[in-house]
Amino acid sequence: MTLAFSVTPDASAERRTPVVELENLVVDYVTRTQTTRAVDGVSLSIGAGEIVGLAGESGCGKSTLGNAVMQILRAPAQVTSGRVLFDGENVLGRRREELRRFRWRTVSMVFQSAMNALNPVMRTGDQFVDMIRAHERVSKHEALGRAGDLLELVGIDRRRLRAYPHELSGGMRQRVVIAMALALRPELVIMDEPTTALDVVVQREILQQIRELQTELGFAVLFITHDLSLLLELAHRIAIMYAGEIVEEAPAARLRDEPRHPYTVGLLSSFPPLHGPVERLAGIPGSPPDLAAPPPGCRFHPRCPHCTRDDAALYARQVGERPLLRVVGEGHRVACHRETP
């Protein structure tokens, strides 16, 4: 039985000390034939104990961003410029040994498919022990004890340490992965679509669990997903990503009630409501751009209902100039030419 505490997302933008700050992060995929810019100058800050949602569709760069912060980018992806600051220190370009200590202690990651993270031929307990002992000098016995504590933390009977991953249900495996991510009490946990592959009821369970743990242990979360409706319930703040850039960022309730960027508006209207009147929704016409050759100016302009030739000056800016993020309210930033006079 799992009961969740009801914690409503913070409406006020509380001033928190930032755990991690991304400054103009640029990530490219470099092949012999071309260079694709997957993340184009993203700046984002995540405060201590804050749940920040990163929403976007496939190809927008959100997973690449998560991997970049975690420093697990694989060739041909590379960080071209920008900084990732943890407690004021840039972690990009650190050497392997430092990185090893940085990873998992300061920031850990939960992936979409737990089976990608769990070794199918090792018992769950052994995987915990391996991981703990890779970072700390403890005896196997002590590591197992801590592993048991972690399992109970996520609501799994500690006897399951002896089970193999395939003996656990999908939801349980995902919780094991979350427990592993919390093993060293990191300051930040990056979650990349952790519940997408799970059924709706299990997803609800996991989300309630994450909220509980987060309140209890106080870690920050970067929750990457395409499911905006999920973030509206879970996150304190939400950033919307499109074609490698952040186009809007606001506290969750504000984003839901006063979205400013046309893409956000379109996204919000792509989720049919479960209650209330059923009107015909429009969605967003067209498809995300090819990042190897993005549209000039505002990357969303080919699909934007407000990009018309009616206002020639505005139109010229929309197709020629990239909009910058501007503050339009308390904790609310938008990158849209219509926001500037």
Binding site: P285, G286, S287, P289, D290, A292, A293, P302, R303, C304, P305, H306, C307, T308
Partner: peptide, 11 residues
């Protein structure tokens, strides 16, 4: 402004 779903094709 509006694009039909079909006009943008992947390369």
């Amino acid at each position: 402004s509006q694009l039909q779903p079909a006009l943008e094709l992947a390369p």
